[in-house]
Design a protein around this nucleic acid. Structure first.
Lengths: 165, 165
DNA sequence: GTCAATAGGCTTGATATCAAGAGACTTGAA
DNA sequence: TTCAAGTCTCTTGATATCAAGCCTATTGAC
């Protein structure tokens, strides 16, 4: 079956027959698929009254394990946003009762952000919903193909994830 | 080589051993790789004094072929932004001398956006730079692996691209 | 002990985006 | 011909983000 990238590549080959546009076959598909996934996730989370950014913060805390708390700085590095953005996010999640700010007992400058009971429930429910949706998207592929795809993608992501970039 | 998703999946298996998180092996890698690519592209375009959104608009016009012009509405559907955003983009590109607005001779409501000479040169140069960079990223894989990866990704993108979604 | 340098979180100001709607023009049915 | 409905672009108002800088507390060299 043809997709949008096939059409994109065909257009470039017509307009710029001198260029080798083969890289687009892989990387444009990655970018476009990621956009589709963003939209799909937004819909899945909306069923649990969560925005994608809320899910990101809550699940970072959830994955930290009991007692489900991290400093704002640790949340920054996990979610790749700036400190101003994180302050804003914590404010809003606090207002919704999904997290709470606690003073850090070991550093009087510091703050700890902790998941509330409700925050934990919402994160768990949204994760289950997300996984169901993702399984449906991946049903296009056999189990073996999924494994192969994961392995090929790992080869591309590993350099980014391991070099300081 | 391990990547960030391996660590993510391990954390979930520890915290939620009851859940099957296998879908994350593929789709979280797609999302994370797309983010890395966005950053890398921003750097590549900066060498040509272009923002990613400028590249998107200019190359849409470039791909349209001679005389390199499209209506704002056609640009909307190609770049997936809203009309307010596109008006703003065309304004800024016009100020930089990369595109120009022309009245549509066949519809007095309408406008045509046309690439200037400089806009075409900048788009062509930026595309060549992007392809060089992408080739470097893909050097991790053999030619056969790249073909396989492109095929697997196409199976996932095709439903999104062909169903009205 | 003292003080400069650093770390941690928050505040401010600017910007790009989106959603909603306004204004100008075209189309098609009566 | 007329006019209601549709199309196309631009404008407005609200929002989330980022970059830069501020303030407080901690650390380490002397």
């Amino acid at each position: 079956m043809e997709d949008e990238v096939d059409r994109l590549v065909a257009a470039w080959r017509r307009e710029r027959p001198d260029l080798d546009v083969e890289p687009l076959e892989v990387l444009s598909r990655v970018s476009r698929l990621a956009r589709h996934l963003d939209r799909a996730r937004r819909l899945a989370f909306a069923e649990h009254q969560l925005e994608p950014w809320e899910f990101d913060v809550l699940t970072a805390l959830r994955r930290a394990g009991n007692p489900y708390q991290l400093s704002p700085g640790q949340l920054l590095t996990q979610t790749l946003v700036t400190s101003g953005t994180m302050t804003n996010r914590i404010d809003r999640l606090t207002k919704k009762g999904l997290v709470e700010r606690l003073p850090d007992p070991s550093d009087r400058r510091g703050v700890l952000v902790r998941l509330t009971e409700e925050g934990q429930d919402r994160a768990d429910q949204a994760l289950a919903g997300l996984l169901d949706q993702e399984r449906a998207i991946l049903a296009e592929l056999s189990r073996a193909q999924r494994g192969e795809l994961a392995g090929l993608l790992r080869q591309l992501t590993a350099p980014f994830d391991n070099i300081p970039g």
